[in-house]
Design a protein around this nucleic acid. Structure first.
Lengths: 245, 245
DNA sequence: ACAAGGATACTTGTATACAAGTATTATAAA
DNA sequence: TTTATAATACTTGTATACAAGTATCCTTGT
């Protein structure tokens, strides 16, 4: 079994986790990074042998990965689905959907506390990148957006986030590790995008928030999906106007 | 242990399911219907004893319910969260968000096949209600909306739906069982709403689709959340316009 | 050579056993 | 009476054992 150090979770993550969660994290990373190819059939026994644990935690791990749409559980083995370009776009569809919804709730609240929290996280990100710590940067990035979502106390939006988070985290982790080596200057732009996001929250400015989101997503080169979202709002807006008549 | 027949899943559901899924279904129904009160601490051993199975399927069931936000897994027992009015509104927030997004994709496709499929389901619903079969009606209702979501082949929207579905199904099941006794005439309105939905899909008419959705959700007496969605679209629309400049 | 059928080696689902940790309770001492 | 401490009864996480089902492959018969 290949044990490339390139594709592991940061250790601090796995310390407090159970064996099942650890295996899920490792498998997730290997699937998303492509080490385990799409179409592969995973067997509980083989994985258990590979990771030197019993089948109980493995079953837990596979259930987790199945709920994240990374594998499909069949009666005879689990088929690896993985992430194609299509799935990655879909993930950002969902993120856009969630975060725009969340923002509308946020601007009805007192945003001072949240803005301070986000500023702190942003500072951490700056420090992380100053010391070329891609992992820490990625983790704080994820925490940034999670904090925004948590702030509105919407348990079902949070539920969606919780499902999406591990895959997102993995993607961002891999992306940042790559960039810190080859496209280091990108980080200043990412930082700037987050600053804009905070400004948008402080000033409750929808346009600013959208600008930041678009900059962020364009960064990860996702195009075309925005149009659907746009139409979606248009549609809902029309209906809502109609209702208000 | 109280075994009220009022709060069970239809048998046809549980036949092909594993013990863990069966227990999850039963527990879900009991939690949502309020038989198990919010705040209750569930222990794996006690549930295993109650349902006369081992802890393995119970652990599976609890993981499922936790992913549905019905319980919270702690180190010492699982705390029942349940559904308050707030959570139910949140669920409809998500449904609105998803279905409006889906609709924008649908109207870019050939809708004939979908419209036929939905018409068939609607016919089944009519038959179900003709024979006062609340369970069958509820199941077809859920299938109706699932078919719409499936039609766009968006695996992550489907993922969200899959998470939401069991709780939705439970809610609708209980709601329909109640209505078939006390508010029988409601069903004609529900049927009408679905007819409007199909018409909207056939004619690709956003306003009509929104009207149907609103009628549907107002039916389940959810107010106030629509405004947030409306603002959300407005915001996104503005940003998209800005981008198109 | 080829088809049919059975043995075999896998698969998952479930039950049980064990280990480590936590809360509670009872006991004992001040 | 109150507090501290130790014993006990619970909790979850993991390992292992067993049962039922399925695919594969090999053998056997034609």
């Amino acid at each position: 079994m290949i044990e490339s150090k390139e594709f592991h979770y940061p250790q601090k993550f796995l310390l407090k986790a159970s064996a099942g969660e650890r295996v899920a994290c490792e498998l997730r990373m290997r699937i998303i990074s492509g080490v385990i190819e799409s179409g592969t059939i995973l067997s509980e026994n083989k994985i258990a042998a590979n990771y030197a644990v019993s089948r109980s935690p493995i079953r837990e791990a596979l259930k987790i990965l199945a709920s994240e749409n990374l594998i499909r559980l069949g009666r005879m083995g689990a088929e690896v689905i993985g992430l194609t370009e299509k799935e990655i776009q879909e993930i950002y569809d969902v993120r856009l959907l969630i975060e725009t919804f969340v923002f509308e709730r946020i601007i009805k609240m007192d945003t001072e506390k949240l803005a301070r929290e986000l500023s702190k996280i942003l500072e951490m990100m700056k420090v992380a990148i100053k010391y070329r710590d891609a992992d820490e940067f990625a983790l704080q990035d994820v925490l940034f957006h999670e904090s925004i979502i948590r702030s509105i106390n919407h348990s079902y939006m949070l539920m969606i986030w919780d499902n999406l988070k591990p895959v997102m985290e993995c993607l961002i982790l891999l992306s940042m590790r790559l960039r810190v080596k080859e496209e280091y200057e990108d980080f200043t732009r990412v930082i700037r995008n987050h600053e804009i996001y905070i400004e948008a929250i402080e000033s409750k400015d929808r346009n600013l928030m959208l600008e930041s989101l678009h900059l962020n997503f364009d960064d990860v080169q996702v195009q075309g999906t925005v149009d659907d979202l746009w139409m979606s709002q248009q549609m809902q807006a029309k209906g809502a106007v109609q209702k208000n008549d």
